[in-house]
Write a protein that binds this DNA or RNA. Structure first.
Length: 374
DNA sequence: TTTTTTCTTGACTTTACATCA
DNA sequence: TCTGATGTAAAGTCAAGAAAA
């Protein structure tokens, strides 16, 4: 079987990307798309789209039991570039299908492969208060299948369901990367909707558009709570969480990786802002002190007119830790001498010094602030 | 109402490191 | 002790989709 994409209802080209189980579903989709086309008319979107399904035309792959596309003879299906180009339009079809659902909510579509996870297994928030999360219909998990038969879904419900539906819909074997043993185990055990790892572009090797999953608010909230408890999951916790949320362990792992990275980024930004503020405060303090030094120097010049341009020396008594400024070399004056006592008691400096000014004299390296601080 | 810009976030690749057989 | 395989965190990045302008 083969899917054909018809744009404008005039041309029909083959599509190799989806076969097997999806055929029946897409038969419905195609019919619905035509219904949609006739209902909405060609004028509404400027063009009309319909998906039709042709017989399999020598395709070399089939859909495996787990919903993944398998190659039978090793030939890469992406070789058909023309087909790949057509595949890019699948996304538009999906969007169109959403519109179809809005027009005909009783249309039943279930494109998903059988899920190993019990769809009726309630999420924790269900078991807590029994309330369903917003937008979804009852106990039908938004990330599992799309059943629009029973109750007309809301727009949000459609979006939630279809976002995950796309994820399942586009699942296939990861052929571009080497799979680790654990990956294979996870895929076999839990993962039924693992998406391709290759992200060389927004379309994969088969030319199918990658659609981005959006976690529901409930899923995000539950992950947030888990992150508060423990920002790093061990494999067991990861599997448990994935099962509870009906996500793949890989998705949970990626979510936690991103969460850690973005938490760290926010923390770094906060640290930067704090340090920036400290720097500004210190720069202001430095400017104030430099200004005071200038004032003191000016005061020194005016109050000591006889201060000649003689070599000066700052000295500090090792016993009393008092500073003296003199034009003679008194560093060799031994303590407890008359000269030392005279310096210590009467003329430590040529002018009175405040404690702050003394400290400045003791640290004469304090000069004008660096240019980057001023 | 439509278009453009910005932000959020799910997912990917690469690298480095730890552990184990 | 060395080596290769494996798993995973961190850093950087891309891009879809939502939100804001």
């Amino acid at each position: 079987m083969e899917l054909g994409l018809s744009l404008g209802g005039k041309s029909s080209k083959t599509f190799h990307g989806i076969t097997g189980k999806a055929h029946d579903d897409f038969t419905k989709t195609a019919a619905a798309a035509q219904t949609f086309t006739s209902a909405a008319g060609e004028c509404s979107l400027g063009f009309c789209m319909a998906l039709t399904i042709n017989s399999l035309n020598g395709t070399n792959q089939k859909l495996s039991d787990d919903g993944y596309i398998k190659e039978e003879d090793g030939q890469n299906i992406s070789d058909d570039q023309e087909t790949s180009r057509e595949n890019r339009k699948i996304e538009a079809i999906i969007d169109g299908r959403q519109k179809i659902l809005k027009l005909n909510p009783h249309l039943h579509l279930d494109l998903l492969p059988p899920s190993p996870v019990d769809r009726n297994d309630p999420l924790p928030w269900f078991s807590d208060n029994g309330s369903s999360h917003g937008g979804s219909s009852g106990n039908v998990l938004p990330s599992r299948g799309l059943d629009v038969t029973n109750s007309p879904p809301t727009a949000a419900g459609i979006e939630e369901a279809t976002s995950s539906l796309r994820l399942n819909f586009y699942s296939y074997n990861r052929t571009s990367n080497v799979l680790g043993k654990k990956d294979l185990e996870l895929r076999n055990d839990v993962v039924d909707m693992e998406r391709p790892s290759s992200r060389a572009s927004d379309e994969d090797d088969y030319g199918i558009y990658r659609k981005k999953l959006r976690l529901t608010k409930q899923q995000s909230a539950y992950l947030e709570e888990s992150f508060k408890d423990n920002s790093i999951l061990n494999p067991k916790q990861k599997l448990e969480l994935a099962k509870q949320l009906s996500l793949s362990p890989r998705q949970v792992e990626v979510w936690f990786q991103n969460r850690r990275a973005r938490t760290k980024l926010k923390q770094t930004e906060m640290d930067y802002e704090y340090l920036k503020k400290c720097r500004e405060e210190l720069a202001g303090e430095n400017r104030r002190l430099c200004k005071e030094v200038q004032e003191l120097r000016a005061l020194k010049t005016t109050s000591n007119p006889f201060n000649l341009q003689l070599p000066t020396t700052l000295i500090m008594c090792p016993s009393c830790e008092r500073v003296a400024k003199t034009t003679i070399n008194t560093t060799a004056v031994p303590p407890n001498t008359k000269l030392h006592q005279s310096m210590s008691t009467t003329s430590r400096t040529p002018f009175p010094l405040s404690s702050e000014s003394r400290s400045i004299l003791m640290y004469p390296f304090l000069r004008a602030p660096p240019s980057d601080l001023s």
